[in-house]
Amino acid sequence: METLTRRVLQILERDARTSADEIAVRLGAVADDVRNIIAECERGKIIRRYKTVVDWERAGEDGVLAFIDVRVSPAREVGFDDVAARIYRFPEVLAVYLVSGGYDLQVVIRGPDLKEVAMFVAEKLATIDRVQSTATHFLLRRYKEDGEVLVETPEDRRLAVTP
């Protein structure tokens, strides 16, 4: 990937609302080139969408997030794909990853409370054919997300004027 494209994407990943003109100034590029790069990335699905990072806790919405380790017996020809598809079609499911290690699929689920999520796992996930077992971990505290430390507020400890 070209350096300019990578830089444009890095800036947008940090703040998707940065205008093409601002990006162009920052990178010493031509604004139209930046617009073209963004359009190209949107067309090529390199940019999937623009989202807002919402701190739901702060907004007073007490949903819960759970990570579920799912062990699956793979099947001939499809491997884990068909089971993954059965899982990712549920709207409650935020993410599904195939991972190495002690289990096969890692599923991220958001629900209104512990009980609802537990029921969903018991009724919908555990009962899927070839799902051998599930282990549910509820998220208790976010320390760092998307490269950003959430529990410390950065503080400028520098003297305001120094030579």
Partner: peptide
Amino acid sequence: VAQMDDVVSLGVGE
């Protein structure tokens, strides 16, 4: 500066 709040400092050499 030391007596002020809400200063945006472009005076820092570090």
